[in-house]
Amino acid sequence: MKLKINGKTVDNVKAATVIELLDELNVHSGRVAVEVNLSIIRKADYDSFALKDGDAVEIVNFVGGG
């Protein structure tokens, strides 16, 4: 399926859930926050939350800041 991840369109996503998407992108799930269509997905729901074609996903983490 096609997802918009961090503002970029990504084709051929195989992942069906948030946790599978993080695995597919090689992102450590413990240090990020995930938003799907502007709703934050709780860490406890990563393995059950189903992604749909066209979803807008944001994956954020902490960077240096003041």
Binding site: R31, F62, G66
Partner: peptide
């Protein structure tokens, strides 16, 4: 220590995490 929240770089997964 203060930090900011920004998008994860999904194209370069070698990039390290501040934490």
């Amino acid at each position: 220590v203060t930090v900011s929240v920004r998008r994860v770089n999904i194209t370069d997964r070698k990039s390290e995490n501040l934490l």
